[in-house]
Design a protein around this nucleic acid. Structure first.
Lengths: 213, 213
DNA sequence: ATCGTTATGTTAAATATATAACTATTATCT
DNA sequence: AGATAATAGTTATATATTTAACATAACGAT
């Protein structure tokens, strides 16, 4: 579908923002919007928005603008949100539990099909109606259900070994919340690291250095 | 302290990663490291690492490398991690609870001094020993304690009004987890948005478009 | 219908970022 | 102590990203 290949990550990372805002407009009943209006609302330049969208195709009409409904759908398609990638969650601590209950996976291309933890205090409990399984059950479960993605909400120490196991079970995509960088030991994996600590530290820097732009 | 001013965000966002890795090295007892070694471990170029560090000063020794312990401290200072910025958390749902228990604020420049929620089912309960207060108590609390930062873990709808209140109470820094972009309605604020949904959507894109680089 | 206005799609310029090349300094070995 | 190797700091180049400018197409009013 992409008009060109190799879209830069800078562009990709703005798409969800567009999608989010367009969904909001749709809900408000707005049917039409121009790149200039969008740029004002989003704090970007109109040029950038047009460039971004034109990486994937011409979704607008000259002299008119973009049809909100249509553009929203297009971006959703580009992002692949209609997928239902089978996903498992490893780690049912506070963070894992929050992710499981807080995220609306079905609206963002995923389906949470299993939750695992190694601690007996967690296994057997329920999160959003789903029973937390013991990590020893991982092999059986994966062979049967073939999940394609794993969310990692476990302490640093456990990551390496669980990663090896998951990889050998065919899992290639990881959403990593652990205090550890999974930086491509394998070629065919996709990793999205969410480092809340890093985010907090950069915030600390910016508070401490207010004259930095 | 910065050698030059206006350090780019690209550089700032790498600092926590360096800090994290150096801390790890320190714990392992490594005393010395070169930019080349670092580059291999972090998957960056040695050039970039040297450039990044030299934005703030010459911390290494030619022909020798960097002293892990010292470099780690320097980066910690640059980030301002020895601060104890007084912080409040708004929203004690699953995510807020996870943030409160999961983050080690004291090690990253902050101190969590209060947790607030508007729901009677949450107020009065305890998180990490701290009682969840009602948001109506916000004014009294802030006037007394003068927090400088607020973590927002509330639904989209509530953000706008709580933001106005917090701003008028002197809070200027925000760590925003809500499904809403706080993009600078005020000049003197610092906002770090953490959009887990956006992160998940970009992951979805990358899974759906494996040939994208 | 025609003309002016609007706003996209596209090409070009400017800026920012990352990489490579070079220089200078220090450690280490003989 | 001198020579050599190693490695940071710095300058220059290349690449990526953003912004601006332009040219073209569609809408809408007259």
């Amino acid at each position: 579908m992409p008009k060109r290949e190799n879209i830069s990550m800078s562009v990709i990372r703005r798409l969800p923002r567009y999608y989010r805002f367009l969904t909001h407009l749709k809900e408000k009943g707005v049917t039409r919007i121009s790149s200039t209006e969008l740029s004002v609302k989003l704090g970007l330049t109109a040029s950038q928005i047009r460039q971004d969208l034109n990486c994937f195709g011409g979704f607008g009409q000259q002299g008119y603008g973009y049809i909100v409904d249509q553009l929203c759908d297009e971006i959703g398609n580009i992002l692949g949100l209609s997928n239902r990638y089978k996903t498992i969650l490893i780690g049912a601590g506070n963070l894992g539990r929050a992710i499981a209950t807080h995220m609306q996976f079905e609206e963002e291309g995923f389906e949470l099909i299993g939750i695992f933890d190694s601690s007996p205090s967690k296994t057997g409990t329920r999160i959003n109606g789903k029973i937390v399984m013991d990590t020893t059950e991982l092999e059986d479960f994966c062979e049967k259900e073939k999940p394609v993605m794993a969310i990692l909400c476990i302490p640093r120490e456990g990551v390496h070994s669980i990663l090896e196991r998951l990889y050998s079970l065919g899992v290639r995509n990881f959403w990593n919340f652990s205090h550890y960088d999974i930086s491509m030991r394998y070629e065919d994996t996709v990793v999205e690291n969410v480092h809340l600590n890093d985010s907090l530290m950069t915030l600390c820097y910016r508070i401490s250095n207010p004259n930095n732009k």
